[in-house]
Design a binder for these strands. Structure first.
Length: 662
RNA sequence: GCCGGUGUGGCGCAGCUGGUAGCGCAGGCGAUUUGUAAUCGUCAGGUCGUCGGUUCGAGUCCGACCACCGGCUCCA
């Protein structure tokens, strides 16, 4: 008896009936069978042991594909669970999905025990034993009731079966919870040693297919992501199709570590976090402060050009203000504690918006003034929980490049489109070019009328469509008072960062009873848009440092050119070069000839100075410089100074000449 | 906030089972005057995160706290 299956390339192939996917792969080629980990049969992922039927469309999934890696990772996480239950009998195991670059598994150890780093080595060697034994994974199906019986002493598994069987979870985030639970039945995978796990599969046929993995770290993780539920012990690991791919991944991690803005900040003497000041409160050293200032000056200039007016507001305000704004009702726990003074209670501001509203309300406003765009680079304080602080990317004192736009309802759509274009244009000037947006819609915990939310959300989506930026909808991720667009960018090594945020506020105008006089002499409520472009100056600074690995573009570099005389007697000429550069507003550093040239060049290079100029005998004689450009291996010699300056000047400003906004 | 880890001169590190701290870089000084990624010598610098405890004796052991690192939760 023969059946016929259709392969990925569309060709048909006759195989004996009862043939498994693996037998098919082996029949096609030895290499394919070795590399196979699973297959897609009629579009559904199946084990290699899956028995083919006549007419099946089969696509063998190999280990070096994204899908293949996912299966390897998933299977490795099962081996992890097996090793842990071997080493600590009585362990309850929860979930263990594949994730980007690896996998994790959550456990509850008997007696409330916690994993330590030393445990990782033990677990890893037990895993290697299991892998070397070449244990098989075999699939079986049970009824829900049988499943509950099978996992009688595994409450987390039982909870998965119960909740998923009652109410199949459909959102992407909880997809792993659907593991192995189908309509009225569950599937489990059993190792030849007897370890059983609830799982949808597929899995590799045998642990022998695994091995290129490494356990990375232990962490606590709340069961089902809920702080109120037990905290489980999570082990993270990485797994790849080959030792080579594993090694490459570890090298990538090392490279990313070198870009860490906290490390670069230290190396380049840009900022630090004095413990005497407190966690999440950075101080910027002269060079770091200079970079900030360049960013902020540039931002202010562009905002003024784009029709914004600068505002300035204080750092603290009476509780009354935050009662009106609703911050005390909604986000008190995120605010710094209050200060008492002369019978009043003051709070450090967590946001600038209430104060900008007061500027708006300082007098009556005419429709002719709208849109009124206020802009402030204002420092706000937020009481971030100690565990979430992360260098400059997450601080307790942050400086928002914050603006609030007040407009007539009919101006909203146009204003949002214009705003989104402005944001993208500014971000591009900083050398960032890959963007993606999220449209965050109404969350469960929120205030306002449905029709307002719909109007505002539609206006945001309109702006997104018009900008051409790719976006997705983040359901229920909006702020309590407003839907929003979050702009994410991709850095030089492909990591995503959330930067700009753009919100249509439905609450503040009402809370503060804002109005404007329209052309028909009636009083109307303005719309309000909140918007931070960098997000926070500190965080954006961190992103730039990581994106450029510290080698900032010339216009952002605190030192743009270092001038190095070869010998002391070239000093006068070097000083002349320095003066000439300063005339063109170049930020120049001078390195006297008191140590060997090579050593000084090395220092300048390590400071990531964009241009190192070396001047010696021939330069003194003919008015030239030697140019050692950052990133280039071959220094140029005998370049006339004026020529170097002509070349440098266009790099001194962020925006390429001739390009304008709007 | 929770789980795990770390905390030794400005930076990077060493210091075995407890016996009063070392190295490299950076820094000061002196010599060297050098054509493209480390010149030589010399000097100085640490109450070992903080506080408390155990001990004849603590950088080493215990506890609390602080800060940082990796996660979880959170992120107006």
């Amino acid at each position: 008896m023969e059946i016929s299956v259709v392969l990925a390339d569309g060709s048909e192939r006759k195989v004996p009936s009862g043939f498994t996917v693996f037998q098919l792969a082996a029949a096609i080629g030895k290499r394919l069978s070795e590399d196979s980990v699973a297959a897609k049969v009629n579009g559904i992922l199946r084990d290699l042991a899956f028995v083919l039927k006549d007419g099946d469309h089969v696509e063998i999934v190999t280990r070096n594909t994204e899908q293949g890696r996912e299966i390897l990772r998933h299977s490795t996480s099962h081996v992890l669970a097996q090793a842990v239950t071997d080493l600590w009998p009585g362990t309850r195991y929860a979930i263990g999905p594949p994730i980007a670059d690896g996998f994790y598994y959550d456990f509850e150890l008997p007696g409330g025990r916690h994993f330590t780093d030393e445990d990782l080595a033990r677990i890893e060697s037990r895993m290697r034993e299991i892998i070397n034994e070449g244990q098989t994974f075999s699939r079986s199906e049970y009824s829900i009731a049988q499943g509950m019986e099978l996992f009688a002493d595994q409450p987390y598994k039982r909870e998965i079966i119960e909740t998923v069987a009652n109410d199949r979870i459909e959102s992407d985030e909880d997809e792993e919870l659907n593991e192995g639970v189908g309509e009225g039945s569950i599937s489990v995978y059993r190792n030849s040693s007897g370890f059983v796990d609830l799982c949808r599969g597929p899995h590799v046929p045998t642990t022998a297919k695994l091995g290129s993995f490494k356990l990375m770290r232990v962490a606590g993780a709340y069961w089902r992501g809920n702080e109120k539920r037990p905290q489980l012990q999570r082990i993270y690991g990485t797994a790849w199709e080959s030792d080579k791919a594993l090694k490459e991944h570890l090298v990538r991690l090392e490279e990313a570590e070198k870009r860490d803005h906290r490390k670069i900040g230290l190396e380049l003497d840009l900022f630090h976090f004095p413990p005497e000041i407190g966690g999440g409160l950075p101080v910027f050293h002269p060079r770091g402060a200079l970079i900030r200032q360049i960013m902020e000056d540039y931002s202010k200039k562009e905002h003024r050009k784009a029709g914004y007016q600068l505002a300035w507001t204080p750092h603290i305000a009476k509780s009354t203000l935050f009662e009106i704004s609703g911050h005390l009702a909604w986000y008190k726990s995120g605010m710094y504690p209050p200060m008492e003074m002369e019978g009043a209670t003051y709070y450090p501001k967590p946001m600038n918006c209430p104060m900008h509203i007061l500027i708006y309300k300082s007098r009556s406003r005419s429709y002719k003034e709208l849109p009124l765009r206020l802009f402030e680079i204002g420092t706000v304080y937020r009481f971030e929980r100690s565990g979430v602080l992360h260098g400059l990317a997450r601080v307790r004192g942050l400086t928002q490049d914050d603006s609030h736009i007040f407009c007539a309802p009919n101006q909203l759509a146009v204003e949002l489109s214009r705003l989104l274009r402005f944001i993208i244009s500014i971000l591009k000037t900083f050398g960032l070019s890959e963007f993606e947006a999220e449209l965050a819609t109404r969350p469960e915990k929120s205030v306002g009328e449905d029709f307002e939310w719909e109007h505002a959300t539609a206006a945001l989506e309109h702006a997104l469509k018009e900008s051409g930026i790719t976006y997705k909808i983040a359901h229920g991720e909006g702020a309590f008072y407003a839907p929003k667009i979050d702009v994410h960018l991709k850095d030089a090594i492909g990591r995503r960062w959330q930067v700009s945020t753009l919100q249509v506020d439905l609450q503040m105008p009402q809370r503060f009873d804002m109005e404007f006089v329209d052309s028909d002499n009636t009083r109307k409520r303005p719309y309000m848009i909140h918007r931070a472009l960098f997000g926070s100056v500190e965080r954006f600074f961190a992103i730039l440092l990581e994106h450029y690995a510290g080698a900032l573009p010339v216009w952002l570099s605190p030192v743009q050119v270092s001038v190095l005389p070869v010998r002391d007697d070239h000093g006068d000429y070097a000083q002349h070069v320095l003066k000439e550069l300063e005339k063109s507003d170049v930020r120049v550093d001078y390195m006297a000839a008191d140590e060997p040239l090579g050593s000084r060049i090395r220092k300048a290079k390590m400071e990531k100075v964009p241009y190192v100029l070396v001047v010696g005998d021939t330069d003194v004689a003919s008015g030239t410089v030697g140019v050692n450009e950052r990133g280039s291996k071959n220094p140029e010699r005998d370049l006339p100074l004026s020529q170097f300056i002509t070349r440098l000047v266009p790099e001194l400003s962020g925006r390429p000449l001739g390009e304008s906004l709007d």
